[in-house]
Simulated assay, not measured.
Amino acid sequence: MADDSSRLARRVVVLVGAIVAVALGWLLFVELPTDLAELLGVVAVLLVGVVGARVAGRVARGLFPDYDVAEVAVEGPITRRDGGRVPTPTGTPTDDIVEQIRRADDDDAAEALLLRLNTPGGEVVPSDDIRLAAERFDGPTVAYATDVCASGGYWIASGCDELYAREGSLVGSIGVIGSRVNATGLADKLGLSYERLAAGEYKDAGVSLKEMTEDEREYLQGIIDGYYETFVDRVAEGREMDAESVRETEARVYLGDRAREIGLVDELGTREEVKARLADRLGVESVTVEEFQPQRGLRERLQTGVRSVAYSFGAGVASVFDDEGDANGFRFRAR
């Protein structure tokens, strides 16, 4: 936690900034102008003083940070930014989360990382990107599961030093799923047929407008099995568990207490108890947490709002007919 000298320094910077702003405002709006301007001078001085104090506050915060723990949230489905599909406004894109963790790592004030997880999982490689970013953070890292830390979320948590959860948290789901929509029956009713133009035997494996052959099914299942083995290895290494014990979970989710019993969670606790643990790790009496947010411009914030509206109206219908995926409509998810 920031000491008293740092707090005093921040207050001095703010005070000096406000005084300078007021003095400049007085000079510009009261001393120099004519009588008409002087009538509005006091109001203008006050406004300039407020702006000056706010600017000085930002400067002081940068020079003398009042936090020592960076918090980054992983909420909602884990996926890349849009990827050309219907946008999902409920989650934070993976690249934004990775950027926040890296920013925290570059911040000299952030001595530890608190990764708050409330996610049902998502895509495999994006989940691993976040896990790697957390693993590379230079300092203690604690994952904190709130409502759900499943599948891709647990993949991420395996890269942290410790994992805390609540008694009612759902934790686990160490598994991978691949899915496709079999639309051949619908295509027959509509009079549609699939005409193959491809090079390579398995190039169109998983396309929804044709039945899969046994060879294609075996091929795609092999990819899923490969992802699963990687998932098991990540958890076994990160949680210091036996790989067979991880497999025995059979992709189940567990309530917090049971998850702790089988080693998927270190401790149960509230946010305040997690902060107390971080204080112990840093060797201080208490910590101050600063939540890192995605750095977005005005245009991007407006686009996010528009996408949210579009998602509300169109996501349900579009998801039925969406035939894009990781392999010709066949999607792989850590779930």
Rank of each mutant, 00 (worst) to 15 (best):
V59T: 07
F64I: 10
S169G: 11
V265K: 07
R331Y: 05
D161V: 03
P33I: 00
L24H: 04
F29V: 02
A318Y: 11
E240Q: 15
G178R: 00
A205S: 14
V13W: 00
F313T: 08
N118G: 06
V72A: 05
T304P: 00
C160G: 05
A143T: 02
A110V: 10
R277V: 02
T230C: 02
Q303K: 13
A70T: 07
L113R: 07
A205C: 09
Q303F: 10
L36P: 08
R81L: 15
G269W: 01
A251K: 01
G159R: 01
K189F: 04
G84C: 09
L268N: 14
T88E: 11
D105Q: 13
V43K: 09
A157N: 02
V306G: 06
A205K: 02
A259E: 02
V309H: 06
Y154V: 02
A243N: 13
T119N: 03
D4N: 08
D257V: 08
G25L: 12
D108C: 08
R281G: 03
R54C: 11
R217I: 06
E38R: 15
A198T: 14
G200T: 12
A236P: 04
D266W: 09
R180L: 10
E123V: 09
A53I: 11
T184R: 03
A327C: 08
M241G: 07
S286L: 00
P93D: 04
E237I: 00
G185C: 00
A73H: 15
P33L: 00
L192R: 11
A236F: 03
G172P: 11
G49M: 06
A109M: 04
A199G: 09
V22E: 12
T119A: 03
R103E: 15
A44M: 10
A60S: 10
E291Q: 12
S158M: 08
A327W: 15
D323T: 13
I262E: 07
L170P: 05
A2H: 14
S173Q: 15
T94E: 06
V20R: 09
D128K: 12
Y311K: 04
Y154K: 03
G152V: 01
L282N: 06
A157R: 01
F321W: 14
G57C: 07
C160D: 04
A315G: 10
L15K: 05
R196C: 07
T94L: 03
I223K: 05
L298T: 14
A198L: 08
A199F: 11
R102P: 06
A276D: 15
F332D: 00
T34V: 07
D106H: 13
V289Q: 14
F321K: 09
G57Y: 04
V317R: 09
V98S: 02
A53H: 12
V55T: 08
A318M: 08
R7C: 06
D225Q: 13
V16Y: 10
T88P: 02
V148L: 08
D106F: 06
G121C: 02
S6Q: 15
D280M: 07
V51K: 09
E111W: 00
S312T: 08
F29L: 09
V98C: 05
A9Y: 05
I156M: 12
M241V: 06
L27P: 03
A279N: 14
G25D: 06
I224L: 14
T90L: 11
E291Y: 10
I224T: 13
E244C: 14
R260S: 04
Y228C: 05
A70G: 13
P33G: 01
D138F: 01
E248R: 07
S286M: 01
R234K: 11
G139E: 04
Q295S: 13
A133V: 10
G152A: 05
